[in-house]
Structures are given as structure tokens and as C-alpha cells.
């Protein structure tokens, strides 16, 4: 191999190495995490989050196909599949078919696996939760209590020193019941708060929906419980819908408008009909 050939092949090799390195560098690491939710102790679901560090910033990754498993990554334990949305989230309700695996232990783990894509290699994420539930209750003096229990073996046991948030469900977000946002549970697993929101608009009967929740807890996940109480102000919603207005549907125009319009139409067309009658009269006069 002469000198020029050596240089030529070295250049080709360097170029191939650069291309390989570049193609490898093109793929970013996909980070998957998973959150467990238990609402009102009956609706359980999982929310997976897909993100990746691109150009030094974490970005949510949409359109990632995810498989959700319970306990192990076996086909038998597949809970279902979902695709991440534009916020990088994918939601999956835990199906009843997972009942047997769910009952096996007080602790349950969930696994998510992403398929290999053009931009990302296969990735995994998992979470282990201890089964727990929260119960909300109220007293006559507008006191709200929440009891947090976890499953130990087969017994529901109180959990202490866990922050519980008490709030009122509103249209867009939850409103704290008082200035303090969270309350810690005591040794009996009970946290309590006073309802300080007087004259808060409720529904037509003055009902408000109270909610007690544990958020993003490393052991128990997200738990919440709701209760409807008549502590709000009764609001009678006034609506113009289907009333006689200028902007109502056909047949619901204001009476004054109908009266005015139809009177004009009847008056003018009355004259025209009279004149058509005069033509008939002219004909009769001409014939006779």
C-alpha cells in the first residue's frame, strides 16, 4: 500500500467513524416515569411521563408508544398500551383483569416500556406503591377530617406524618379550605382542617365538593377522596337561553318585535291584497 492509498483509506475510515458517532449522537435518552392515582378509593389509573434532554433542556416527548405492566414485564401482566400526548403524558386505567396480581401483595409495582423509535432507544420506567386509601369526613362545626390508611399484610393501618391537602373543587383548579394548604396526619392517621370559606358560591342548592388528597407521595402515590357538603352559597343561575330575546332562536323573538313586524307586514300586504281585488273589480266592470 503506497503513501497515497494509506492517506485515502485513513480519510475514509475517519469519515465512517464520524458518521457512526453522529448517528449515535442523534439519539437522545428517553426518560420514563410513572405516577399512580387512586380517586375516591375506586378509580385507579396510571399516568406515564416521557421526557428527554434535548439541547440542554428537558422536553416532553409526544407520540411514544408505551406498554404498561403490573409486577413483571410479562405478556400475562400487560395492563394495556397508550401513546403520550403533546405534554408527554399517557394515561391508562388499571383494568379489572389485573385483579389477581393486584391482590397478591400489599405492595404493587408498575412498569412501563417504550418501543424503540427513530429518535429514541427502548426505555423503561417503574414505580412501586404501597396500597393505601384516604377517607374524608365532616363534622357539624364545619370541620373536615381525613383518615389515611395503608395496607399492612391484610390489615388497614393508620399512617402518620403524611401531608394531606384539603380543598374545594372549583371549575379550573382546587381552592384551599383555609389559608394553610396541607395538614399532617397524626398517629391515628387523621388530619383535620377548619372550613374557612364563607359565602363561597355553590350550586343551586349551595353544595360544594370537598376533596382531601395526598399528592405525589413516594410510597402511596396520589390518593384523593371527595364529599359533597351544603356549605356554599346557593346560586340561582340566570340564563337568557331559550327566552324571547333579539339573539334567541327562530320563533323566540321578542313579542314587541313580532307585534311590530307582523303589523307592518299585515298592513302593507293588506293594501296589496285590496289592490289585487281592485284589479278583479276592474275586470268585472269591463265584462259587464
Amino acid at each position: 500500500m503506497n503513501k497515497h492509498s494509506k492517506i485515502f483509506f485513513s480519510a475514509i475510515l475517519l469519515q465512517l467513524l464520524a458518521i457512526t458517532a453522529f448517528s449515535q449522537a442523534e439519539k437522545n435518552d428517553l426518560s420514563l416515569s410513572i405516577s399512580y392515582f387512586n380517586n375516591n378509593n375506586h378509580t385507579q389509573y396510571l399516568v406515564a411521563h416521557a421526557k428527554s434532554k434535548i439541547d440542554g433542556k428537558f422536553q416532553m416527548i409526544p407520540n411514544i408508544n408505551l406498554s404498561f405492566y403490573i409486577a413483571t414485564e410479562d405478556a400475562a401482566n400487560l395492563l394495556g398500551k397508550a401513546v403520550t400526548n403533546e405534554k408527554g403524558d399517557a394515561l391508562l386505567f388499571i383494568p379489572p383483569t389485573a385483579k389477581d396480581e393486584w391482590k397478591k401483595s400489599a405492595k404493587v409495582s408498575f412498569i412501563i416500556v417504550s418501543q424503540k423509535t427513530k429518535g429514541f432507544d427502548e426505555a423503561k420506567g417503574n414505580v412501586e406503591i404501597t396500597k393505601a386509601k384516604i377517607q374524608i369526613d365532616t363534622a357539624a362545626d364545619r370541620k373536615i377530617t381525613a383518615t389515611l390508611l395503608e395496607l399492612k399484610d391484610t390489615v388497614w393501618t393508620p399512617v402518620k406524618a403524611i401531608d394531606v391537602k384539603f380543598a374545594i373543587k372549583r371549575m379550573d383548579a382546587d381552592l384551599n379550605v383555609a389559608e394553610t394548604p396541607t395538614y399532617a396526619t397524626d398517629s391515628l392517621g387523621v388530619a383535620s382542617a377548619d372550613f374557612k370559606r364563607d359565602s363561597l358560591p355553590g350550586d343551586s342548592k349551595g353544595n360544594l365538593t370537598l376533596i382531601a388528597k395526598v399528592e405525589d407521595n413516594d410510597v402511596y402515590g396520589n390518593l384523593s377522596s371527595e364529599k359533597i357538603v351544603p356549605w356554599g352559597k346557593s346560586i340561582k343561575y340566570f340564563t337568557e337561553y331559550d327566552k324571547r330575546t333579539l339573539f334567541a332562536r327562530r320563533g323566540k323573538s321578542p313579542l314587541w318585535l313580532e307585534l311590530l313586524a307582523y303589523s307592518i307586514v299585515v298592513a302593507v300586504w293588506g293594501v296589496l291584497i285590496y289592490l289585487f281585488g281592485q284589479i278583479k273589480k276592474l275586470k268585472q266592470l269591463g265584462i259587464h
Binding site: K281, L282, K283, L285, G286, I287
Partner: peptide, 14 residues
Amino acid sequence: GSFWKNTAAQIHIS
């Protein structure tokens, strides 16, 4: 207009 006879009554109505 065949019925028009130009009578006083017709002219009045018209």
C-alpha cells in the same frame, strides 16, 4: 288589459 273599457268607474278605481 282586454277588460279595460275606459269607463268612468274604471278610471276612478284605477
